[in-house]
Design a protein around this nucleic acid. Structure first.
Length: 836
RNA sequence: GCCGGGAUGAUGGAAUCGGUAGACAUGGACGCCUCAAAAGCGUCUGCCUGAGAGGGCGUGCGGGUUCGAGUCCCGCUCCCGGCACCA
């Protein structure tokens, strides 16, 4: 059969017709339901995509991420594993609330409508999900258990309340997320945003800091290195010492004098502390401030509160601060040093106060120079005087001007001074973390209500388990734009309730939980999604978890992954799970950008996925995404050409049509036919298996293209379409292609005379006998440059190869009579001849 | 500023053990098929030089190690991402 004839049978490759035909049939077949039967002995494999936020329809980024994860899930299906590949929606969150306020609709309506849109798109996109396990975090059946988990953390002392700062818009009377603050102004009304203190719930993730660090060791090599590094840096463990400074004039104010403790990584420089700084917006600053400096501090504070976190922490900003009229006493030498308040010290890090050593810390030096404070060198680093150069010397050196520490090295001095402080009870070795506790309260409507009541008599009372879920009040038709603290406060019938302990009046907490709480345990819920006796069925989670492969964007490299890891550790301590890490392997797929930039409305460079799918078909878009680059790299859509994928898919379909017409199904099972093509087929199987296992999908697709070319050649100018090797190649092509282009692969499978579905065909295995090469190419180099090539049997000996190489025409031509110094032989692939 | 990642033809990328640089694809040129076009099928395509055989150069830049470096080491430049005064 010729190419022209095959074109008669498959006139044109029509992706839309194939999609319509197969999507309906697949729905009826329910192909990808995971079996939870404990008797099922197939290897279990949990492949998980980060679940989407239903902000609208799916976009180009989803198209890439889900194509990659789906190829992996389909591979394990083909291998015969019992695969769990679920889908759900991270459905609470701010955009729904904003859309509701703008469009005057209810967040639930907006959310569920978008979910349906995305679900339909997912089905059309032919993802191998087990739809029976679908979940949505905004369903009461789900958030009931989010609340239950909150109560368990509360019970264990891991949920507590304290004051924390929020961005506050004084005009809208609402709390703003960081992303709603645009250069210090409210994104809605443009008024200046201030920081305001609110009492809020926190999860004590810092208690798990060391375990979060230590448990990363087994993830090495299974998670991307940069992610592990970012997690480590985020936790930010540093060793040093706590040092207590008494404050002059504070003692005895309220009974016992509370010295102020600082954390330092450089206790060796204690003799060089020439002033003391507290975070201007900390409680400490207010406590320490002398009455006559109060007005000055208040004025300064007003300025500090206008700054966003980002502005405040800009390195190139000039140092600012005010003197508080107090002096701190250096515990080692009794020296009195002035206490200042400044914004370069952060209230949340360490103790919110520092001892300033300007000679050896650049920030302290900048501050000292600005305000004329003394600079004292206590470590001789051999560098020039910081007071003159303006450059602090933070490096190693010999201690000077430091009493008992003089002459010691930095390391010895740290050890000695820590010992002295401990002896006198004015300090001790300490570890500090950059990680802060997780603020989970949100002054939002569209989230899981915090299941706590406040009773006048009993105080803080957890909602009894049997009263869960604490359902969101409807508030339909009401203005969700908050006029006070939290939108839920407006639902007075909902807020006012009775105390389960004393039966007296009580009020509900009107805040909802951070949506990261919802997403910190959803992967456990998938194991038993309909379970009504608990958050998840312990036995089911034991069978499926931890997740074998987690696929998602690098933008979640820190928070989501860290919080999920924390939750699993807490559940481990509760003996509800028997593992300490939720995700055994992690893959970060890259972003889809356009013309060098992330797609955005303001840049006007957005690409609509729906239009792309309509123009080129689902399979071509999936294939283009996978073939474009290694999965972890960004893809610039402007560089892509989906028509190339359409062309390839048509080519494969015609091959299937030719082979299907020329021979009957089953003919390929006979190990016969054109040996050259059979070798290509089996090498492809072997290579693609290896490449998919290593998630090197772009190269796997290239190998499929090579097999297609070889098969086409065999049909047109080789043994012809009826050869069993051609059928074997065509069937192999269909099965391997099913990972990337499921519709086309299914169509090919039918053209080849097989009943649906190709997804159940089974992954082929390569015949080792066909992987052996008759001849291999040996390159012959002279002085490292290729001068000739030889075709040699793979078993050629070093001596034989050496002789062959020396006799090669390219060698004698290049040597031109020169003598030979050495000959390097790496049989059978390379010989390097080094001339005199 | 710090941390991380990267730089390979006109373009996306391949070469994951230090051993043939440029697989595969796009784009381009040409051929076959066709009344013609499209589609399809095929050949060529890193740069310079040469009629050709061949020769020279070539993986951001400069050094180094090695028989041999895209790959390892040292020093730079530029780009991308993340974090942002972390005591």
């Amino acid at each position: 059969m010729t190419a022209a004839e095959s074109a008669d049978r498959v006139q044109t490759y029509d992706p839309r017709a194939i999609q319509e035909k197969w999507q309906a049939r697949w729905e009826a077949m329910d192909l990808f339901r995971a079996s939870d039967d404990p008797e099922d002995t197939r290897p279990r494999r949990y492949v998980l995509d980060m679940f989407p936020y239903p902000s609208g329809d799916l976009h180009m980024g989803h198209a890439e991420a889900y194509a990659v994860a789906d190829a992996m899930a389909r591979y394990y299906f083909q291998r015969g594993d019992n695969v769990l590949h679920p889908i759900g929606w991270d459905a609470f969150g701010l955009p729904a609330e904003n859309a509701a306020i703008r469009g005057n609709s209810h967040p639930a309506d907006w959310t569920y409508k978008n979910i349906e849109t995305q679900a339909a798109s997912f089905r059309r996109y032919a993802l191998s999900f087990d739809w029976s396990r679908r979940l949505q975090t905004c369903d009461p059946e789900y958030y009931q258990w989010t609340q239950w988990l909150f109560l368990r953390l509360h019970e264990r002392g891991l949920a507590y309340r304290k004051d924390g700062y929020v961005n506050w818009c004084p005009v809208d009377q609402t709390v703003l997320a960081n992303e709603q603050v645009i250069s210090g102004k409210c994104e809605r009304c443009g008024s200046e945003v201030a920081r305001r203190s609110l009492t809020q719930w926190y999860f004590k993730i810092t208690e798990y800091a060391d375990r979060l660090l230590a448990d990363m060791a087994p993830l090495e090599g299974k998670w991307p290195d940069p992610v592990l590094l970012m997690q480590r840096n985020w936790i930010g463990r540093s060793e040093g010492a706590e040092v207590s400074f008494a404050i002059e004039g504070i003692e005895g104010a309220e009974g016992a004098a509370e010295p102020v403790t600082v954390f330092t990584t450089r206790p060796d420089t204690l003799y060089g502390a020439t002033f003391f700084v507290v975070a201007a917006d900390s409680v400490l600053a207010a406590e320490l401030c002398a009455p006559e400096h109060r007005a000055e501090l208040d004025a300064y504070l007003a300025d500090v509160r206008k700054l966003t976190d980002i502005e405040r922490q800009a390195t190139d900003r000039e140092k600012t601060g005010v003197f508080l009229g107090r002096y701190a006493v250096n515990p080692v030498n009794g020296e009195q040093i002035p206490v200042w308040a400044a914004d370069y010290v952060l209230p949340d890090y360490g103790t919110g106060a520092i001892m300033a050593v300007p000679a050896h810390d650049q920030r302290d030096l900048d501050f000292a120079r600005k305000f004329g404070l003394p600079v004292r060198v206590v470590v001789d680093t051999g560098g020039p005087d910081p007071a003159e150069t303006g450059q602090a010397t933070p490096g190693e050196g010999t201690l000077v001007n430091s009493g008992p520490l003089d002459g010691l090295s930095k390391a010895d001095a740290i050890q000695t001074i820590t010992g002295i402080l401990a002896e006198r009870g004015t300090g001790q070795a300490a570890v500090n973390y950059r990680l802060r506790d997780w603020l989970v309260s949100r002054q939002r409507f569209w989230g899981a209500p915090i299941p706590i009541l406040y009773c006048e008599g009993c105080g803080e009372v957890p909602v009894p388990e049997e009263d869960l879920p604490v359902r969101l009040p409807d508030l339909r038709g009401q203005d969700l734009a908050p006029k006070g603290v939290s939108p839920l406060a407006a639902a007075s019938e909902w807020v006012n309730t009775t105390c389960p302990k004393c039966g007296g009046p009580a009020k509900r907490d009107t805040d909802t939980m951070d949506t990261f709480v919802d997403s910190s345990w959803y992967f456990l819920r998938y194991c038993s999604p309909g379970y009504t006796e608990g958050a998840f069925e312990v036995e089911s989670v034991r069978r499926w978890s931890p997740v074998d492969l987690y696929v998602g964007g690098v933008e979640h490299a820190i928070l989501h992954l860290l919080y999920s890891r924390f939750f699993v550790k807490v559940l481990y301590d509760m003996r509800m799970v028997d593992f300490v890490e939720p995700f055994t392997a992690l893959m970060n797929q890259g972003q889809v950008i356009n013309r060098g930039k992330a797609m955005s409305k303001s840049l006007g460079n957005g690409v609509d996925l729906g239009q792309q799918l309509a123009a080129h078909g689902v399979d071509a878009i999936r294939l283009t995404m996978v073939f474009a680059s290694p999965p972890e790299d960004d893809v610039d859509w402007a560089d892509m050409n989906p028509d190339a994928s359409v062309k390839f898919l048509g080519r494969v379909t015609r091959i299937a049509a030719d082979a299907g017409t020329a021979s009957a199904a089953g003919a390929g099972a006979v190990a016969s036919g054109d040996i050259a093509l059979r070798k290509v087929t089996h090498r492809t199987i072997s290579e693609v298996t290896r490449l998919v296992e290593g998630t090197r999908l772009n190269v796997a697709v290239a190998r499929l293209m090579e097999l297609a070319t070889a098969t086409r050649r065999a049909i047109d100018s080789g043994p012809g379409a009826a050869d069993p090797a051609v059928r074997e190649a065509a069937e192999t092509l269909a099965v391997l292609l099913s990972l990337f282009a499921p519709y086309t692969a299914e169509e090919c499978w039918e053209l080849l005379g097989h009943p649906a579905s190709v997804a159940k065909a089974g992954w082929p295995s390569a015949d080792p006998a066909l992987l052996v090469e008759d001849l291999v190419t040996c390159v012959v180099q002279v002085a490292g440059k290729v001068r000739d090539r030889l075709a040699v049997p793979p078993g050629v000996t070093a001596a034989e190869l050496r002789e062959l190489a020396l006799a090669a025409p390219g060698v004698s031509r290049t040597l031109a009579g020169r003598g030979i110094r050495t000959v390097i032989v790496r049989e059978p692939k390379l010989v390097n001849i080094v001339p005199e």
